Amino acid sequence: MDTRHIKYLDSKGISLVELLVAMAVLALILSLSSRLIFQNQDITTRQVLAGRVNEDARLAILRISDVVSQASYIFPNNATITVQTGATTTAVVTGDDALAVLVPPRTAYCPLTTTQYCGFLYRLEARAPYATDLGNTPGNSGWVLVEYQARGLTWNANTNPSSVASNWASASFSSRGVVVDSVTDNDTDLSLLAFAGITSEVDRILAIPTSTVSVSLNSTNALIGSVRVRIGIAYSNGLQATRQSDILARGIPRAVPPGN
């Protein structure tokens, strides 16, 4: 055998050390590549979730805007509304955590053919009672925005509708559901109300007097024509969104007079 040929083959071979070094370099490259792939995936996932949070806030504002824009009456702050929560009744006070309106019949959100009205109440509540339906979303704020609906409320003509607040729990139809999950109390406000500048014959008792200073936004005699709603959503991982809208009610002067 030609030993020179054998030496030539040996000189072109790969040693064990070289093989181990090559494998180590390859493993490092694969590790870095995998890390970049996972980082890009995390960024993409976070962008998707951020878009979803913003969309949740937008849809919540849109829902409230659609309902309030058809309202014939916006309850002032510090009004007490009695609603049905399961088998019990709950007294809710309107303010920064609660907004209540009356929607006239024969409208998109009050499909009644009678002269009775539909009541809508939006309220911040603890998330725990709704966790079964919402699921275990990590890092949520622990609060949700809930919509209560009551149909068949009677509002007598030319009277203050404050008495309507006491019979929501005995309405012919009532329901409740979550509008948006993981809302924050600090960034959510449902209470910024504004007077309407026009009165109508239907509102003889409700009409704003000559001196509007004598009627506050907390008074049931105040003709409230608009509300500014701000909704904040936040999760512990840093995802958050805030939406705000100025909503004008359609009912001043009243589009549909109360029934007798």
Results as ranks from 00 to 15, higher is better:
67 V>C: 02
68 V>S: 01
32 L>T: 13
119 G>N: 05
44 T>Q: 13
200 S>H: 01
103 V>M: 03
234 A>L: 12
110 C>P: 04
82 T>E: 08
163 S>K: 03
148 Y>C: 02
46 R>I: 08
23 M>W: 13
84 Q>A: 10
216 S>L: 11
179 V>F: 03
202 V>F: 12
30 L>E: 08
54 N>W: 07
251 G>Q: 09
20 L>P: 02
148 Y>G: 01
89 T>D: 11
96 D>H: 09
222 A>Q: 00
71 A>M: 10
109 Y>W: 04
35 R>N: 10
24 A>S: 15
3 T>H: 14
152 G>M: 11
94 T>M: 02
78 N>L: 09
75 F>A: 10
15 S>N: 09
148 Y>P: 03
1 M>I: 11
13 G>K: 00
84 Q>K: 15
50 A>F: 00
73 Y>N: 08
149 Q>F: 14
250 R>S: 15
42 D>P: 00
64 I>W: 01
168 W>T: 09
221 N>C: 03
218 N>R: 03
61 I>C: 03
48 V>M: 12
189 D>L: 00
23 M>H: 05
128 A>F: 04
231 I>G: 06
148 Y>S: 02
99 L>F: 05
106 R>H: 11
223 L>G: 02
191 S>C: 02
10 D>N: 08
112 L>F: 04
37 I>L: 08
244 Q>F: 05
210 T>V: 04
191 S>T: 05
2 D>F: 13
236 S>A: 15
223 L>A: 10
214 S>Y: 13
227 V>S: 07
52 R>W: 10
122 Y>M: 00
152 G>Y: 07
41 Q>S: 13
217 L>M: 10
103 V>A: 02
248 L>E: 15
231 I>C: 04
96 D>M: 01
233 I>G: 04
51 G>R: 00
258 P>F: 03
163 S>N: 13
253 P>T: 06
9 L>I: 13
90 T>Y: 03
1 M>E: 15
138 P>E: 04
55 E>V: 05
